[in-house]
């Protein structure tokens, strides 16, 4: 199998299978969560605040006062990583082309140099977060194999994407195939690791916001 065949496989059946597992996995995990249901809260809410769950989905992205100072590394590197990854996934011209080919939807891309910079920033942030995880006693205590696995499979697409774009180390076609494989690995593992927070974060934030909202405390 030459490099082109490998890339064809990566773009073809490998991608299809990865997407199938990803979608099925996400649906399964959502069923696992919502299938448990919850009891209706019979206590009369203090104020009728129907939007509080939805608002908290967004407002929880803002750190509470004084918290950044307590753990600046987690907050700053966390923001840089998430933003960098988001820009790289959704605003790199070839990625938009890929999404268009699947969904038919298209949107303006960011200049490649900017995406390149955000990828570098995200990689650096990931490295900082790993060092923090290994050094901070709280994070170290909480960490399991799954945390390091999640870190690795998140790093790989960024790294291979960067190397493919800059024609580093390996031949371009091969590197591009590896980039696709790394994305497929990420897709397959996402529903079954903590990376599922990509989806469940909106559920957990909603419940938190609803809880505090009923009590008249904006969270």
């Amino acid at each position: 199998m030459n490099h082109l065949d490998l890339l064809t496989f990566a773009r073809g059946s490998a991608l299809n299978w990865a997407l199938i597992i990803f979608v099925a996995g996400v649906v399964l995990r959502l069923f696992e969560i919502f299938g448990l249901s919850r009891k209706t809260d019979l206590a009369k809410p203090r104020i009728d605040s129907p939007g509080s769950g939805w608002r908290t989905m967004l407002t929880r992205s803002i750190p509470p006062q004084g918290m950044v100072k307590r753990d600046p590394v987690t907050y700053i590197a966390g923001y840089v990583f998430h933003l960098g990854l988001f820009l790289a996934i959704f605003f790199f011209a070839p990625h938009i082309e890929f999404f268009r080919s699947i969904t038919g939807l298209s949107w303006p891309a960011l200049p490649s140099a900017l995406v390149d910079a955000s990828v570098v920033a995200a990689i650096v942030a990931l490295a900082v977060l790993l060092a923090h995880r290994l050094n901070n006693p709280v994070k170290r205590l909480l960490s399991t194999f799954s945390d390091y696995l999640a870190w690795t499979v998140t790093l790989l697409p960024l790294l291979t994407g960067y190397m493919a774009y800059h024609h580093l180390m390996l031949e371009y076609t091969l590197m591009l195939a590896l980039h696709l494989f790394s994305v497929e690995l990420l897709l397959v593992l996402l529903p079954f690791t903590k990376l599922f927070h990509t989806f469940s974060v909106f559920v957990s934030r909603w419940y938190n916001g609803d809880f505090f909202g009923r009590k008249g405390v904006a969270s």
């Binding site: 995990r29 696992e32 969560i33 919502f34 448990l36 249901s37 919850r38 009891k39 753990d71 987690t74 966390g78 995880r133 901070n136 709280v138 994070k139 909480l142 960490s143 399991t144 945390d147 903590k194 599922f196 927070h197 469940s200 974060v201 559920v203 957990s204 419940y207 809880f211």
Partner: peptide
């Protein structure tokens, strides 16, 4: 319940 399942699913061990 559902909230607890969503909480455990979301935890990223950030500490």
């Amino acid at each position: 319940d559902t909230p607890i399942a969503s909480y455990f699913s979301s935890c990223v061990h950030c500490g």
